[in-house]
Design a protein around this nucleic acid. Sequence first.
DNA 1: AGGAATGCTAACGTTTACGTAAAGGGAACT
DNA 2: AGTTCCCTTTACGTAAACGTTAGCATTCCT
Lengths: 138, 138
Amino acid sequence: MEAVRQVDSAPMFSIGELAREFDITTRTIRYYEDQGLLAPIREGRRRLYRRRDRARLKLILRGKRLGFTLGEIRETFVLYDQAHGESRQLQYYLGVLDEKREQLQQQRRDIDDALAELEQSYARCQELLSRQNTDGAG
Amino acid sequence: MEAVRQVDSAPMFSIGELAREFDITTRTIRYYEDQGLLAPIREGRRRLYRRRDRARLKLILRGKRLGFTLGEIRETFVLYDQAHGESRQLQYYLGVLDEKREQLQQQRRDIDDALAELEQSYARCQELLSRQNTDGAG
DNA sequence: AGGAATGCTAACGTTTACGTAAAGGGAACT
DNA sequence: AGTTCCCTTTACGTAAACGTTAGCATTCCT
Protein backbone atom coordinates (compact mmCIF):
# COMPACT_ATOMS: atom_id res chain seq x y z
CA MET A 1 0.00 0.00 0.00
CA GLU A 2 1.30 3.44 -0.84
CA ALA A 3 -0.96 6.31 0.09
CA VAL A 4 -3.22 5.97 3.09
CA ARG A 5 -6.85 6.13 2.07
CA GLN A 6 -10.22 5.99 3.72
CA VAL A 7 -13.17 3.79 2.73
CA ASP A 8 -14.87 6.74 1.07
CA SER A 9 -11.73 7.16 -1.05
CA ALA A 10 -11.05 10.66 0.24
CA PRO A 11 -7.31 11.14 -0.10
CA MET A 12 -5.47 10.92 3.23
CA PHE A 13 -1.80 11.35 4.02
CA SER A 14 0.53 10.00 6.65
CA ILE A 15 2.88 12.32 8.48
CA GLY A 16 5.83 10.81 6.64
CA GLU A 17 4.28 11.44 3.25
CA LEU A 18 3.70 15.08 4.02
CA ALA A 19 7.19 15.45 5.43
CA ARG A 20 8.67 14.07 2.23
CA GLU A 21 6.41 16.12 -0.02
CA PHE A 22 7.27 19.42 1.63
CA ASP A 23 10.82 18.56 2.60
CA ILE A 24 10.40 19.08 6.32
CA THR A 25 10.74 16.70 9.29
CA THR A 26 7.90 14.90 11.00
CA ARG A 27 8.98 16.70 14.15
CA THR A 28 8.15 19.99 12.51
CA ILE A 29 4.69 18.81 11.52
CA ARG A 30 3.95 17.55 15.01
CA TYR A 31 5.20 20.82 16.41
CA TYR A 32 2.76 22.75 14.26
CA GLU A 33 -0.03 20.59 15.63
CA ASP A 34 1.23 21.25 19.14
CA GLN A 35 0.97 24.95 18.46
CA GLY A 36 -2.60 24.62 17.28
CA LEU A 37 -1.89 25.07 13.59
CA LEU A 38 -2.91 21.59 12.44
CA ALA A 39 -5.56 19.18 13.65
CA PRO A 40 -5.32 15.87 11.79
CA ILE A 41 -7.71 13.07 12.63
CA ARG A 42 -6.52 9.92 14.37
CA GLU A 43 -6.66 6.29 13.37
CA GLY A 44 -5.72 4.74 16.66
CA ARG A 45 -2.67 6.72 17.66
CA ARG A 46 -1.66 7.53 14.12
CA ARG A 47 -2.27 10.89 12.54
CA LEU A 48 -4.16 11.07 9.28
CA TYR A 49 -4.07 14.28 7.27
CA ARG A 50 -6.96 15.26 5.03
CA ARG A 51 -6.79 17.54 2.03
CA ARG A 52 -7.58 20.55 4.17
CA ASP A 53 -4.84 19.64 6.64
CA ARG A 54 -2.43 19.47 3.76
CA ALA A 55 -3.70 22.81 2.46
CA ARG A 56 -3.13 24.39 5.86
CA LEU A 57 0.38 23.02 5.95
CA LYS A 58 1.01 24.69 2.62
CA LEU A 59 -0.26 27.97 4.02
CA ILE A 60 1.95 27.61 7.07
CA LEU A 61 5.03 27.10 4.94
CA ARG A 62 4.19 30.02 2.71
CA GLY A 63 3.73 32.17 5.78
CA LYS A 64 7.10 31.10 7.03
CA ARG A 65 8.76 31.94 3.74
CA LEU A 66 7.35 35.43 4.19
CA GLY A 67 8.82 35.70 7.67
CA PHE A 68 5.66 35.38 9.73
CA THR A 69 5.81 33.68 13.10
CA LEU A 70 3.75 30.62 13.86
CA GLY A 71 1.75 32.75 16.25
CA GLU A 72 0.81 35.20 13.52
CA ILE A 73 -0.09 32.38 11.17
CA ARG A 74 -2.25 30.74 13.79
CA GLU A 75 -4.10 33.97 14.38
CA THR A 76 -5.03 34.26 10.74
CA PHE A 77 -6.40 30.70 10.88
CA VAL A 78 -8.39 31.37 14.03
CA LEU A 79 -9.80 34.56 12.58
CA TYR A 80 -10.67 32.91 9.31
CA ASP A 81 -12.48 30.13 11.12
CA GLN A 82 -14.42 32.60 13.23
CA ALA A 83 -15.40 34.79 10.32
CA HIS A 84 -18.78 33.19 9.76
CA GLY A 85 -20.74 34.79 12.55
CA GLU A 86 -21.91 38.08 13.85
CA SER A 87 -21.52 41.48 12.39
CA ARG A 88 -19.01 42.56 15.04
CA GLN A 89 -16.73 39.63 14.31
CA LEU A 90 -16.89 40.34 10.60
CA GLN A 91 -16.18 44.02 11.11
CA TYR A 92 -13.18 43.19 13.24
CA TYR A 93 -11.98 40.69 10.67
CA LEU A 94 -12.17 43.33 7.97
CA GLY A 95 -9.94 45.56 10.06
CA VAL A 96 -7.39 42.83 10.53
CA LEU A 97 -7.41 42.15 6.81
CA ASP A 98 -6.73 45.83 6.16
CA GLU A 99 -3.67 45.68 8.37
CA LYS A 100 -2.46 42.49 6.75
CA ARG A 101 -2.84 44.04 3.32
CA GLU A 102 -0.80 47.02 4.45
CA GLN A 103 1.92 44.72 5.71
CA LEU A 104 2.00 42.60 2.58
CA GLN A 105 2.15 45.66 0.38
CA GLN A 106 5.05 47.01 2.43
CA GLN A 107 6.79 43.70 1.97
CA ARG A 108 6.27 43.84 -1.75
CA ARG A 109 7.79 47.32 -1.86
CA ASP A 110 10.74 45.99 0.14
CA ILE A 111 11.16 43.13 -2.27
CA ASP A 112 10.98 45.35 -5.31
CA ASP A 113 13.59 47.65 -3.80
CA ALA A 114 15.82 44.73 -2.93
CA LEU A 115 15.47 43.29 -6.44
CA ALA A 116 16.33 46.63 -8.01
CA GLU A 117 19.47 46.94 -5.92
CA LEU A 118 20.35 43.37 -6.67
CA GLU A 119 20.17 44.00 -10.39
CA GLN A 120 22.44 47.01 -10.01
CA SER A 121 25.00 44.95 -8.16
CA TYR A 122 24.65 42.30 -10.80
CA ALA A 123 25.31 44.75 -13.60
CA ARG A 124 28.31 46.35 -11.87
CA CYS A 125 29.70 42.94 -11.17
CA GLN A 126 29.41 41.89 -14.80
CA GLU A 127 31.03 45.10 -15.93
CA LEU A 128 34.01 44.52 -13.69
CA LEU A 129 34.34 41.02 -15.02
CA SER A 130 34.13 41.98 -18.67
CA ARG A 131 36.74 44.68 -18.07
CA GLN A 132 39.10 42.16 -16.47
CA ASN A 133 38.62 39.83 -19.42
CA THR A 134 39.29 42.62 -21.88
CA ASP A 135 42.33 44.48 -20.64
CA GLY A 136 43.66 41.81 -18.31
CA ALA A 137 44.14 39.18 -20.97
CA GLY A 138 47.62 38.55 -22.27
CA MET B 1 23.05 70.69 20.46
CA GLU B 2 20.76 68.32 18.67
CA ALA B 3 22.43 66.07 16.17
CA VAL B 4 25.99 65.00 16.79
CA ARG B 5 28.29 66.36 14.14
CA GLN B 6 31.92 66.19 13.27
CA VAL B 7 34.20 69.08 12.50
CA ASP B 8 33.92 68.41 8.79
CA SER B 9 30.14 68.75 9.15
CA ALA B 10 29.47 65.21 7.96
CA PRO B 11 26.18 64.19 9.58
CA MET B 12 26.65 61.78 12.50
CA PHE B 13 24.07 60.11 14.70
CA SER B 14 24.03 58.89 18.25
CA ILE B 15 22.68 55.47 19.07
CA GLY B 16 19.66 57.03 20.71
CA GLU B 17 18.82 59.10 17.66
CA LEU B 18 18.88 56.06 15.42
CA ALA B 19 16.84 54.07 17.91
CA ARG B 20 14.15 56.75 17.92
CA GLU B 21 14.20 57.21 14.17
CA PHE B 22 13.70 53.52 13.43
CA ASP B 23 11.64 52.67 16.49
CA ILE B 24 13.99 50.05 17.88
CA THR B 25 15.94 49.85 21.14
CA THR B 26 19.57 50.78 21.60
CA ARG B 27 20.10 47.21 22.73
CA THR B 28 19.05 46.03 19.30
CA ILE B 29 21.49 48.37 17.57
CA ARG B 30 24.36 47.24 19.82
CA TYR B 31 23.41 43.65 19.17
CA TYR B 32 23.67 44.18 15.43
CA GLU B 33 27.14 45.56 15.98
CA ASP B 34 27.98 42.56 18.09
CA GLN B 35 26.93 40.35 15.22
CA GLY B 36 29.20 42.17 12.81
CA LEU B 37 26.44 44.03 10.98
CA LEU B 38 27.39 47.53 12.01
CA ALA B 39 30.72 49.19 12.72
CA PRO B 40 30.23 52.73 13.98
CA ILE B 41 33.24 54.83 14.90
CA ARG B 42 33.98 55.76 18.48
CA GLU B 43 34.35 59.08 20.16
CA GLY B 44 35.83 57.94 23.42
CA ARG B 45 33.49 55.13 24.39
CA ARG B 46 30.53 56.51 22.55
CA ARG B 47 29.38 55.19 19.25
CA LEU B 48 28.98 57.57 16.34
CA TYR B 49 27.06 56.45 13.29
CA ARG B 50 27.87 57.85 9.88
CA ARG B 51 25.50 58.03 6.93
CA ARG B 52 26.66 54.66 5.70
CA ASP B 53 26.09 53.10 9.12
CA ARG B 54 22.59 54.47 9.05
CA ALA B 55 22.10 53.15 5.53
CA ARG B 56 23.22 49.71 6.64
CA LEU B 57 20.80 49.80 9.53
CA LYS B 58 18.04 50.55 7.05
CA LEU B 59 19.10 47.55 5.00
CA ILE B 60 19.15 45.35 8.08
CA LEU B 61 15.62 46.34 9.02
CA ARG B 62 14.36 45.80 5.50
CA GLY B 63 15.97 42.38 5.49
CA LYS B 64 14.27 41.58 8.73
CA ARG B 65 10.88 42.66 7.40
CA LEU B 66 11.45 40.16 4.62
CA GLY B 67 12.20 37.40 7.10
CA PHE B 68 15.94 37.09 6.60
CA THR B 69 18.11 36.16 9.54
CA LEU B 70 20.87 38.43 10.74
CA GLY B 71 23.32 35.82 9.51
CA GLU B 72 21.94 35.98 5.97
CA ILE B 73 22.00 39.76 6.05
CA ARG B 74 25.57 39.82 7.27
CA GLU B 75 26.63 37.50 4.47
CA THR B 76 25.24 39.82 1.85
CA PHE B 77 27.22 42.67 3.42
CA VAL B 78 30.41 40.66 3.54
CA LEU B 79 29.97 39.56 -0.05
CA TYR B 80 29.19 43.04 -1.22
CA ASP B 81 32.29 44.39 0.51
CA GLN B 82 34.44 41.68 -1.04
CA ALA B 83 33.08 42.13 -4.52
CA HIS B 84 35.81 44.43 -5.71
CA GLY B 85 38.53 41.93 -6.32
CA GLU B 86 39.46 38.93 -8.36
CA SER B 87 37.53 37.26 -11.08
CA ARG B 88 36.79 34.23 -8.94
CA GLN B 89 35.23 36.31 -6.19
CA LEU B 90 33.12 38.16 -8.70
CA GLN B 91 31.98 34.94 -10.35
CA TYR B 92 31.00 33.52 -7.00
CA TYR B 93 29.19 36.70 -6.14
CA LEU B 94 27.19 36.51 -9.36
CA GLY B 95 26.09 33.02 -8.41
CA VAL B 96 24.99 34.14 -4.99
CA LEU B 97 23.05 36.99 -6.54
CA ASP B 98 21.29 34.53 -8.83
CA GLU B 99 20.14 32.54 -5.85
CA LYS B 100 19.03 35.63 -4.00
CA ARG B 101 17.03 36.74 -7.02
CA GLU B 102 15.34 33.35 -7.15
CA GLN B 103 14.45 33.62 -3.50
CA LEU B 104 13.11 37.13 -3.77
CA GLN B 105 11.03 36.23 -6.79
CA GLN B 106 9.58 33.26 -4.93
CA GLN B 107 8.71 35.58 -2.10
CA ARG B 108 6.99 37.94 -4.46
CA ARG B 109 4.91 35.12 -5.83
CA ASP B 110 4.01 34.13 -2.28
CA ILE B 111 2.99 37.67 -1.50
CA ASP B 112 0.90 38.01 -4.61
CA ASP B 113 -0.86 34.75 -3.80
CA ALA B 114 -1.44 35.83 -0.23
CA LEU B 115 -2.80 39.18 -1.38
CA ALA B 116 -5.14 37.54 -3.85
CA GLU B 117 -6.53 35.24 -1.18
CA LEU B 118 -6.82 38.14 1.20
CA GLU B 119 -8.92 40.08 -1.28
CA GLN B 120 -11.20 37.10 -1.72
CA SER B 121 -11.72 36.84 2.02
CA TYR B 122 -12.31 40.55 2.09
CA ALA B 123 -14.99 40.36 -0.57
CA ARG B 124 -16.74 37.38 1.01
CA CYS B 125 -16.68 39.13 4.34
CA GLN B 126 -18.23 42.27 2.90
CA GLU B 127 -20.90 40.22 1.18
CA LEU B 128 -21.87 38.55 4.43
CA LEU B 129 -22.07 41.92 6.11
CA SER B 130 -24.17 43.55 3.42
CA ARG B 131 -26.53 40.58 3.51
CA GLN B 132 -26.91 40.90 7.26
CA ASN B 133 -27.67 44.57 6.90
CA THR B 134 -30.20 43.91 4.17
CA ASP B 135 -32.37 41.02 5.33
CA GLY B 136 -31.55 41.25 9.02
CA ALA B 137 -33.05 44.69 9.42
CA GLY B 138 -36.63 45.07 10.46
C1' DA C 1 26.43 71.19 43.17
C1' DG C 2 22.81 68.00 42.44
C1' DG C 3 19.69 65.53 39.57
C1' DA C 4 18.01 63.92 35.00
C1' DA C 5 19.21 62.11 30.57
C1' DT C 6 22.13 59.48 27.81
C1' DG C 7 25.58 56.09 27.09
C1' DC C 8 28.68 52.12 28.31
C1' DT C 9 29.83 46.98 29.47
C1' DA C 10 28.67 42.59 31.35
C1' DA C 11 25.69 39.03 32.15
C1' DC C 12 21.66 36.49 32.94
C1' DG C 13 16.75 35.60 31.18
C1' DT C 14 13.26 34.64 27.57
C1' DT C 15 10.70 33.30 23.39
C1' DT C 16 10.53 30.87 19.06
C1' DA C 17 11.12 26.91 16.32
C1' DC C 18 12.55 23.31 16.06
C1' DG C 19 16.75 19.12 16.68
C1' DT C 20 17.84 15.11 18.95
C1' DA C 21 17.79 11.21 21.74
C1' DA C 22 15.25 7.57 24.39
C1' DA C 23 11.96 4.03 24.69
C1' DG C 24 8.42 1.73 22.79
C1' DG C 25 4.05 -0.14 19.65
C1' DG C 26 2.47 -2.33 15.41
C1' DA C 27 2.73 -3.97 10.62
C1' DA C 28 5.38 -6.33 7.03
C1' DC C 29 9.02 -8.75 4.87
C1' DT C 30 12.28 -12.97 5.01
C1' DA D 1 11.19 -15.38 15.06
C1' DG D 2 13.85 -11.65 13.81
C1' DT D 3 14.59 -7.44 11.56
C1' DT D 4 13.15 -3.40 9.29
C1' DC D 5 10.12 0.51 8.77
C1' DC D 6 7.01 3.81 10.23
C1' DC D 7 4.77 5.81 13.82
C1' DT D 8 4.10 7.30 18.82
C1' DT D 9 5.08 10.23 23.28
C1' DT D 10 8.22 12.49 26.49
C1' DA D 11 11.83 15.36 27.37
C1' DC D 12 16.06 17.65 27.28
C1' DG D 13 19.10 20.64 24.13
C1' DT D 14 19.94 24.61 21.08
C1' DA D 15 20.48 28.79 18.01
C1' DA D 16 18.61 33.30 17.14
C1' DA D 17 17.29 37.74 18.61
C1' DC D 18 16.79 40.32 21.55
C1' DG D 19 14.81 41.99 26.87
C1' DT D 20 16.17 43.18 31.31
C1' DT D 21 18.90 44.30 35.18
C1' DA D 22 23.04 46.02 37.47
C1' DG D 23 26.59 49.17 38.09
C1' DC D 24 29.10 52.94 36.49
C1' DA D 25 30.74 57.28 33.53
C1' DT D 26 29.34 61.73 31.07
C1' DT D 27 26.97 65.58 30.13
C1' DC D 28 23.19 68.89 30.40
C1' DC D 29 20.24 71.68 33.01
C1' DT D 30 19.01 74.55 36.73
